[in-house]
């Protein structure tokens, strides 16, 4: 029925295929812990299957590099709200589920996914969601798969919602109170803060971008500084207290309004409610009873 996907499914195989791991661009390979030794490596197929710009959706195979997808979309003035880590694949960034630094404006990556075709632990191709921009037909397995680190199934192909590229995109920076700036602006694309300096991404109509920039005592810059390697997940309100936690975080760059902190030091382990932990185990067991999909890895 679907050549590339069926080939991928055959490669993953059923329970007799043993432990198996799906490799993308390896840009976030540490997420969720190391893969158990001996797991066979597979790769999702590549290529754009269908793109109709007026529908603002694109159907793409999971092994496609995000940069390749973005180039195709840019020809029609569109983009997709996936992080553009160099070398990252569409399936990889969805399996990891981490957003890029424009999340404040673009929303989390999980909200870009309309339909998923994934290969299950039984080696079957399963479709979840639907190809239209709006759909509530059945359970939302798409969101369950995004961020599941391939432990419930390997994403083989997806339909994503695209978005228009903003007419103007501009970064400004200054020694501003980022919380006050966020309150003053109308839905900026990003507000980043290292405890002292604030970087703000403004996008939209050129006149609006200028008017918003004029509200700030900030100068134009090329972009934000490099992000420290570790991700802390805080609530937006907790970011105010970051300067007092410098000993824990080291140098940091916080996504104000989102709550994500890129920090020099790793985040402390967080307790998991035992009820949730038990539910997670039941979900894992339901989809992968033999534990063969990305063994060793856990999205927690």
């Amino acid at each position: 029925m679907n050549g590339a996907l069926d080939t991928f499914a055959a490669e993953v195989g059923g329970p007799a295929g043993g432990p198996v791991t799906c490799v993308g661009g390896r840009t976030q390979w540490d997420a969720g812990g190391p893969i158990a030794a001996g797991a066979r490596e597979v790769r999702a197929p590549e290529g754009i299957v269908a793109y109709v710009p007026s529908e603002m959706t694109v159907q793409v195979r999971a092994g496609t590099p995000v940069s390749v997808l973005d180039e195709a979309l840019a020809e029609h003035g569109q983009t997709v709200a996936l992080p553009d880590w160099p070398g990252a694949t569409v399936g990889g960034v969805l399996a990891v589920g981490r957003s890029g630094i424009r999340r404040l404006g673009y929303g989390p990556v999980r909200d870009t996914v309309l339909e998923v075709r994934a290969v299950t632990a039984a080696g079957a191709v399963v479709k979840a969601g639907g190809p239209t921009v709006k759909n509530v037909s059945g359970y939302d397995l798409c969101r369950l798969l995004v961020g599941s680190l391939g432990t419930l199934g390997f994403i083989g192909e997806v339909t994503l919602r695209t978005r228009p590229v903003a007419p103007t995109s501009r970064w400004v920076s200054g020694e501003l109170d980022p919380f006050e700036a966020l309150a003053r602006l109308h839905r900026p694309t990003a507000v980043l803060w290292d405890g002292q300096t604030t970087w703000i991404c403004l996008e939209g109509h050129p006149d609006d971008v200028q008017a918003q920039a004029d509200l700030l005592d900030a100068a134009g810059v090329n972009g934000p500084p490099a992000r420290p390697p570790h991700r802390w997940s805080l609530t937006p309100g907790e970011l105010r207290h970051l300067p007092g936690r410098a000993a824990e975080t080291g140098r940091f760059l916080a996504e104000v309004g989102v709550g994500l902190v890129h920090a020099e030091r790793p985040p402390p382990a967080r307790p998991v409610d035992p009820v949730v932990a038990a539910l997670q185990r039941r979900v894992k067991a339901a989809f992968d009873p033999e534990g063969r999909m990305n063994p060793g890895r856990a999205p927690a």
């Binding site: 359970y139 609530t235 907790e238 709550g259 949730v276 539910l279 979900v283």
Partner: peptide, 21 residues
Amino acid sequence: TTLGGLDAEPDGYDLRGAFVG
């Protein structure tokens, strides 16, 4: 229990997403 969280990237599977709808 509580599914999801107010923080940016709650740990584990997106059970919040599975529950909605």
